[in-house]
Amino acid sequence: METVRTGKVWKFGDRISTDFMMPGHRVLANPDLTPEEAAKFCMEANRPGWAENEVQPGDIIVAGINFGCGSSRNGSQSLNALGIAVVLAESVSRIHLRNAVNTGLPTLVAPGISDFVEEGQRLEVNIVTGVVTNLDTGETLQAEAWEEGSPPYEILMAGGLDAYMRVKVRERGLVAE
């Protein structure tokens, strides 16, 4: 897992729901869409055109409070498919945070991030230490780092739940070596 990531910032407001990331009538209603196809509808209701025309792989999302509120649908799947490198938010819903860890998309709670960076500026984020540097202003901000050795840390560092589980089911003898 690449621990230091730099990218251009897209800013979103408070309470960006997973409905916005993965509209029910577009994605849940069409279970055979690939993650890439589903991602085209990401933020369609709140920021039309963003997913299809604006965001680029390696970009960073900065958001307000309760990012990923609402449904347990995996919004991180769409953010991942769009190539988002890191998500930083004032706060993140519990369900979305777990989905992000399990998807292997670094998503950090970063109080103060909304005032720290403007849209279009570039950030460098160390996803292990939580140190965020604004490359345009030179300022730094401390995001909440995952506790080293904690289950979410281990899952994220494995690259997501699937990779983590593949090792664990062998270790526990559920699947032959």
């Binding site: 995996n74 777990r98 989905n99 399990n102 739940l161 664990k168 089911v169 526990r172």
Partner: peptide
Amino acid sequence: TNANLDAVHVLAF
């Protein structure tokens, strides 16, 4: 509470 992707961990263990 919700377990989404990691409900598979519960199913296994």
